[in-house]
Computed example of a mutant assay.
Amino acid sequence: MNLRIDILTLQLFVAIVEEQSIAKAAEKKHIAVSAVSRRISDMEEMLQVELLYRHSKGIEPTSAGYALLEHARIVLGNLAHLETELVGYRQGTRGHIRLFVNRSAILESLAQELGEFLVLHPLVRVDLEESISPEIIQAVTENRADLGIFGGNILAPDLQVFPYRQDRLVAIVPRDHALAARAKVRFADLVDQEFISLEKGSSIDTLCVKAAAELGRQLKLRIRVSGFDALFRIVEARMGVGVVPMEITHGRFDPGSLVAVPLDEPWAQRTLVLAVRNRASLPPATRLLVEHLLAAEAK
């Protein structure tokens, strides 16, 4: 038997049982009595079973009718729950956000701001992936990420880009290094040092390589690392110097071993940006997160 029972007919059947009257159910649903009767008759004919007893005191379900009533209420309840969930997705109270970010953003401000957002929207799920700037741009462009946060010195011509945060780059040197006592340092003072660099293509690596090239030099790259903690440990072991954002240095190394010296370069004031394919067409939850992050930046 191929059953085809539409939602309105189930709603009418439940209303008839609850009101014990076809006329009252029709009035409640704003449908003609004859149309309601016809729907119930068609359903009984399709199911080949009687669903309702009609007597002088009104209408009550048969045993088959009670079975249908139980399942109809389950189906209608599930549909109501589904509607509530879908409304949540439309309004942004539910959703799934794919977020690609660089390590600086996570350590500087994003973790706290994302936590605040999820307190406000506990039914939103976020997949957070850490990567370097070019890979973040590619992920957003290819729709593998809904939004990305990366260094603003890396161009993303196919994306909509918004300023997210500013940070200040500093040189990390051992406490007994010749540059450690300086109030600030030019990049020209670093370019001849053994250099500990972050991942190739990352925002900071790109800035340092470009700065060296503008001085007509090449970085004396000794070790390339994938994280700031590794960079601190290697510099602490006196294998070279490095460049990191000032904001991520607080409490991350022993000040008796390492010193952060501000870089005296225009490009050392770095902008992190937030990028999307098209802000106007973002899913509601993603749009809410973008608004939350940009509002936090404006404070």
Rank of each mutant, 00 (worst) to 15 (best):
L231C: 04
A64Y: 07
T249W: 02
Y53E: 05
I7E: 15
I97S: 05
E18R: 12
I40H: 05
R270E: 14
K220E: 11
V17E: 08
L190R: 02
A188I: 13
L294E: 01
D146W: 00
Q218M: 13
A275G: 01
G58M: 02
R73M: 11
L274K: 01
P61F: 02
D146E: 09
G148P: 03
R270F: 15
G65C: 08
V33N: 08
S21A: 03
F187M: 04
P262A: 08
A35E: 12
R38Y: 00
A181S: 14
L82V: 06
E129A: 09
D176Q: 15
T141S: 11
Q91F: 01
L219N: 01
A105R: 11
H30N: 13
L8Y: 06
A171K: 01
L169M: 00
A260I: 03
Y53M: 00
M46L: 14
K29P: 03
E214K: 05
L190A: 02
L110W: 08
L86D: 02
A298E: 02
V259F: 09
A15V: 00
M239H: 14
T286S: 05
R39Y: 11
E18M: 07
G58W: 04
I172C: 09
T9Q: 09
G115S: 04
P174G: 06
M1I: 09
G227I: 06
P284I: 10
F187L: 10
